[in-house]
Simulated scan of single mutants.
Amino acid sequence: MTLTQTLGSTFKASLKSLTCAAGLALGLAQGAAAADYVLKVSAPIPPTEKDVVYAWMVAFEKGVEESSGGRIDVQLYPANQLGQLPAAIEGVAMGTIEVTFSIIGFFSSIDPRFQVLDAGGLFPTAEVAMSTLQKPEVREMLTGFGANAGVQPLTVLIDGQGVIISKEPIEAMVDFIGKKVRSGGATPLLNEPLQAVGAAPVAMSLGEVLPALQTGTIDAATNSMGVVNAFKMYDAAKNVTYLPGNYTTVGAVINKDFLAMIGPELGQIVYDEAHKAEAVVARHLANAEKLDAAWEANGGRVIRMSPSEVKTYLTTIAPVVSKIVGQSAQMQADYDLLETAAKAE
């Protein structure tokens, strides 16, 4: 082959490579630009599918992107990447974040109706609680929550039976007395039952709990087994006590302007996939024993109060819950609907 032929072949090969590279770059650019909308999902929990919230987020992302044909790009931001809960909730109300998760009590800052979901003693089991929340009449009621704040519930989940993590064991009613306990919000239905059993509730976002336990700012904190395991809270406190009649309720709200912007067809896809993703909850609740075992494997202790202490606890908080619910006609109506739906299970 002559030098001219060699140079010619080299030029052609280079041109072909450049053309292929340009085509690939164009294809990637077109793929990146394929999504018409970005839907950011914020959550305080770390990225572990042992936690029901993150498992839901992953299922939701996959479902929405597939069902929308890639028109919606779902982006997940766990571990408070978009800010602590108060800021994230404000972000959704303002439209800078499309969706955020929170333990349900913190949403009462934008609409007091959310707090009815914190009523202790309303459900007999976590499974009944989740099934109740999925009933059509309950979903219909929930659509009105947050309406005046520009948000709407996207999903409401049960993250298992509520627990209280503590440095000193809580085995009986007397053990609550004098304890500074983190609660998931500043609402009466969260805090007054704790006061009734002798504790001193402190409203605190999830990201603050571990350092507060480590420094002694609080003595205990309410949460779920999935979360205390995910955050490795056994490094700060070893005891976890299941709270009778208490089921950790978490939810996600979506910005209503975003729903209006994407239109009814895509909006329906978002809601359908949010509900389909709730299938992860049953698997999560079925793994409760594994969460207990994981806690104990890391040196923790799981405590269940005796039947007599459970009865005393529920008897103590029942009139407190009834009094608070009865102070608002709207809350009473919401509570009655939930109670009726739960009893029909």
Rank of each mutant, 00 (worst) to 15 (best):
D272P: 05
F60T: 02
E140P: 08
I218S: 09
A203K: 01
A13Q: 11
A221S: 15
E273K: 12
A329G: 02
E140T: 12
V151E: 04
F258D: 04
M261L: 10
M233R: 15
L18I: 14
Q195T: 13
A236D: 01
I97C: 01
P136C: 07
I158A: 08
P112K: 05
A119G: 09
V228G: 00
K62M: 01
A260L: 03
T10P: 00
G160I: 06
D36A: 05
A236N: 07
M225Y: 12
P188V: 11
L7F: 10
M331W: 02
L26V: 15
V228T: 12
Y247C: 00
T315E: 15
E49Q: 15
R113T: 03
V74L: 03
A93L: 01
W56G: 03
G299D: 11
L154A: 02
M204H: 05
H275D: 15
V163C: 06
G63C: 06
L3M: 06
G105Q: 08
V281N: 04
G185L: 06
P244D: 10
A252H: 06
M305R: 13
E66I: 05
N148Q: 11
V116D: 02
A236W: 06
I165S: 01
A196D: 12
F114A: 05
P201D: 10
V227E: 15
N191Q: 14
R304D: 08
C20H: 11
I104Y: 02
A196Q: 08
K135A: 07
I269W: 07
A147C: 04
G23A: 13
P47A: 04
G184A: 14
V270R: 05
I164Q: 06
L259S: 08
A199T: 14
E127I: 09
P307N: 07
P136W: 07
G150A: 03
L7T: 01
M130N: 08
I103T: 12
E309V: 14
L157G: 04
V52H: 00
G245E: 11
T100W: 05
G146I: 02
S108Q: 10
S328C: 07
S14D: 00
G105R: 11
H275P: 00
A79I: 01
A212L: 01
K290N: 14
G226H: 05
V52Y: 00
P244K: 09
K311H: 10
S68P: 06
A252E: 09
I317P: 05
N287V: 08
P136Q: 12
N229D: 13
Q134L: 12
L39Q: 05
F60G: 03
D73P: 00
V253K: 09
S224K: 13
M204I: 00
G251T: 07
A212N: 09
Y335I: 09
A25C: 09
V227S: 14
A129M: 10
G160W: 09
G226E: 09
G144E: 08
A33W: 10
V280T: 03
C20Q: 15
K180Q: 14
A93Q: 10
W56C: 01
E289T: 14
H275R: 12
D36T: 06
V181S: 05
V38C: 01
Q152W: 04
L3W: 02
P153I: 09
A199I: 08
A252Y: 07
A282E: 12
A203C: 00
M173A: 04
